[in-house]
């Protein structure tokens, strides 16, 4: 759409959140059998490309969603934390499966009892291993979380505040001055 046909008004948050949520690039931290299901999640049958996340990024510098799939030993925890710290903000984390979420059946000395001991986890997926649909659901939860983020500092702790200014009705303003209805 160029200036000859009109322009589009919206908020920065809407555009940024729309862009972020529909192009999440997962960092596949496959540690055990959950990683096999994660491959199915990225493969053609379950086709996570429908949600814009088909581009798995094995470089942490290019990823913004870490899927920790499988049990994590104390030794591996340091490597995972290093990869997590190398990912650029904003970033999100999924603990995939019972072992990543809580240690699962590996209730022993060598396995971290839940990766939330050293990582900020956004979504936990139960299951041993979870089906790819469950991973897609977790991805959709993350997308929902991103769409509700606000970039402008405002106090939302007591709920959305009523503005004294009349809300701007988003619409498309055409070059001859008409405003068409409809949002983004």
């Amino acid at each position: 759409m160029d200036s000859a046909t009109g322009y589009l008004t919206t908020t920065v948050d809407s555009v940024v959140n729309w862009a972020r949520s529909n192009s999440l690039m997962p960092m596949p931290m496959g540690l055990a059998c959950c990683a096999i299901e994660m491959m199915a999640f990225g493969g053609p049958k379950y086709d996570v490309g429908r949600f814009g996340s088909e581009a798995m990024r094995f470089s942490p510098r290019q990823a913004d969603l870490m899927i920790v799939a499988g049990w994590c030993s104390y030794k591996m925890a340091h490597a995972i934390r290093r990869v997590w710290d190398q990912m650029a903000d904003p970033k999100w984390c999924i603990a995939m499966g019972a072992c990543a979420s809580s240690g699962g059946m590996h209730r022993c000395y060598g396995v971290v009892q839940g990766i939330d001991n050293f990582l900020p986890v956004d979504v936990y997926i139960p299951g041993c291993p979870p089906r790819p649909e469950a991973v897609i659901h977790a991805l959709m939860d993350i997308q929902e979380k991103i769409r509700n983020e606000y970039s402008i500092a405002k106090d939302y702790t007591s709920g959305p505040q009523q503005s004294t200014v009349a809300p701007i009705n988003p619409g498309i303003l055409t070059s001859d001055g008409r405003t068409t209805a409809g949002g983004v």
Binding site: Y74, A77, H78, I80, R81, R82, D85, Y109, N117, F118
Partner: peptide
């Protein structure tokens, strides 16, 4: 067994 730090 040490865990990694929680801050970068």
């Amino acid at each position: 067994l040490p865990l990694p730090p929680r801050t970068p």
